[in-house]
Design a protein around this nucleic acid. Sequence first.
DNA 1: AACTCGTGGCC
DNA 2: TGGCCAAGAGT
Length: 305
Amino acid sequence: MTSTVPRAALTELPARTAEWFRAHARDLPWRRPGTTPWGVLVSEFMLQQTPVSRVEPVWLRWMAEWPVPSALAAESRAEVVRAWGKLGYPRRAMRLHAAAQAIATEHGDRVPSDVAALEALPGVGSYTARAVVAFGYGLRAPVVDTNVRRVVARAVHGAGDAGPARTRADLADVDALLPAEDAEAAVVSAALMELGAVVCTARSPRCGVCPVHAECAWVAAGRPEYTGPRRPVQGFAGTDRQVRGRLLDVLRAAEHPVPKAELDAVWADGAQRDRCLDSLLVDGLAEQFADGRFALGGTAPRTTD
DNA sequence: AACTCGTGGCC
DNA sequence: TGGCCAAGAGT
């Protein structure tokens, strides 16, 4: 797949964005010197669909408690899910736990530094793998998230927003923007994300302070509105996601296994409630004991073998 | 390829 | 107020 990035954009945009990033980057904990690739991996898991402000305190706690993959791997899954708290999408906690176990047992407790090995880990996809390579190891890798897709759509292609993901083409577009040298490419990757997160935002972009305002194709085109298809907004009230969240909230808060009656109290619709509880059991986020009571899944600490 | 999976803050 | 959004991944 070849990039559709106009040649003119390849010159100034990456350099200007990187320069702006060096001067204005937010002081996020996982960007501080001394952060290990493991720290970066944990941050990327937590940041999947979750705002920075909610991740920060949890990440700091996790790094203090589990500074290396093997430390998290030795924890019980239930404790990991409990520590995840209300970050949302708790299956991420399970997958991070499983990833830590794979890293500990199959990679000598070192986070892999190549995309293929990273993508083989549970919960690590195209974005997270490249984010670890770039931000954890300072290597050249096209990092494509929703922010970067929006920046490229506007500044390079002159569109109001990014359309549906075209994974191969998106990777090629960003790859074309990266300089050859590893360290500088990693900075550009971080800079493109940062630009999308704080300047080139989805709603009310701050073009007045944008470092690439002068060469932005969207500005040049008069900031046309996005007319393409939009991903349908997910509802939440009344969905299984809400019910699962309430059930899991009870299990997280409980120090001991809880009787079903306690779970029945969180949702009126019995059929939906039972379906959701069953799905939590299937996922492994919950488990049922012989006496009928329920707890977070994986209550027993992992046995070392 | 479309759908699912949590949670909370913001304009 | 409530639709919309926030560093995706798995199926």
